[in-house]
């Protein structure tokens, strides 16, 4: 019996930044402190024209390999979670080539947003435990900054670019490492967070309020739209029930969980969820001040930060929970 685990995790943020100071110059009605208080974010990292989802993922993988003495030749499956706009080529295959990984391996791209890391962990666990792969390089990478219309402050203050890399491999056979998975999908709420332009189908088809003329924007070709109240209500409705389902499946109580690492959407919403769930602050990790909402990378970035800060220790029971665009959500327990 093979039990897959997260053997290592690391991340990469591009050098370019969008700070609250920059934003308050463009939107004078929002002061630096107001943005920080509303979002919990101080700065976001922004990819430049030469950077891509694939190049950020390559940098994250190199950090993972270098910091953990991982031989790249050990990788036998690449799973990249991204919502890239480049549909003509496989970003995972590009990463495989640029990292010089072995040729006889699979490299696949899956499309999911804020729940993507949880789903990818489930897929990687399946690959390892069914014997298809031994060492899965799990990557998340997104550059939502390209989708954000620079005049739309509601999303511009939140999203940042970034990538993460995790090694999923067999752990100790006698213990369960990744367990009590819960998944959820509600496509009828897919219009609450959408890139209305740049795809095959006009956004107005399912999300009339995403149209740029309705929003008073000059289109940049993508124009990421978020119905903030709808997303907030969705989160408040699915997160508590999913936490309960995971605990039930794992046979644990809330107090048995050493650390909660949720998708880092914004600090205001996270604190609201934490209080509603009755989780003490010391067991609820928040890490988005320096990176913002990096979509499927927020959970692995937070895990990596928690590890570096000594908050996350071997043997801890950790709950991961992702939720957002889709609408899609998922969570699990991790024995660290």
């Amino acid at each position: 019996m093979v039990n897959a685990r997260i053997a290592a995790v690391d991340y990469f943020l591009p050098a370019g930044e969008l700070t609250n100071e920059h934003l308050s110059v463009q939107f004078p009605e929002w002061t630096v402190d107001k943005i920080a208080a509303k979002t919990g974010i101080r700065t976001r990292h922004i990819a430049n024209a030469a950077e891509s989802e694939a190049s950020l993922a390559v940098m994250a993988a190199r950090a993972l390999f270098d910091n953990n003495d991982i031989e790249s030749s050990a990788i036998d499956f690449v799973l990249l979670c991204t919502q890239s706009s480049d549909l003509s080529s496989s970003a995972a295959r590009t990463v495989q080539r640029q990292l010089g990984l072995r040729l006889g391996i699979a490299a696949i791209d899956i499309n999911l947003g804020c729940s993507g890391y949880v789903y990818s962990l489930g897929l990687a666990k399946g690959l390892v435990e069914s014997g298809v792969a031994k060492n899965v390089l799990l990557l998340t990478a997104d550059t939502y900054s390209r989708y954000v219309n620079s005049a739309d402050k509601s999303v511009r203050t939140l999203f940042g670019d970034g990538a993460s890399a995790s090694l999923i491999a067999a752990g100790a056979a006698e213990s369960r490492h990744l367990y009590a998975f819960e998944y959820g999908t509600n496509g009828s709420g897919g219009n609450a967070l959408i890139v209305p332009n740049g795809g095959r189908r006009p956004g107005q088809d399912i999300a009339p309020s995403s149209a740029t003329d309705v929003r008073g924007l000059v289109s940049n070709g993508f124009d990421l739209f978020m119905d903030g109240p709808a997303i907030f209500n969705f989160t408040l409705s699915v997160v508590p029930t999913t936490v309960e389902s995971i605990l039930h499946k794992a046979g644990l109580g809330l107090d048995d969980v050493d650390l909660f690492v949720f998708h880092q959407a914004n600090a205001f919403m996270l604190q609201h969820l934490r209080r509603k769930l009755g989780i003490p602050p010391e067991r609820f990790f928040i890490s988005l001040e320096n990176s913002g909402n990096t979509v499927s990378s927020t959970i692995p970035i937070a895990l990596s930060e928690a590890q570096k800060q000594g908050v996350l220790q071997p043997g801890m029971r950790v709950m991961l929970l992702g939720f957002g665009v889709g609408l899609s959500w998922g969570g699990l327990m991790v024995q660290w």
Binding site: T185, V195, G199, G203
Partner: peptide, 10 residues
């Protein structure tokens, strides 16, 4: 896919 996001399967 229909859109760059959300995911079409959803």
């Amino acid at each position: 896919p229909d859109y760059l996001l959300p995911t079409t399967a959803c």
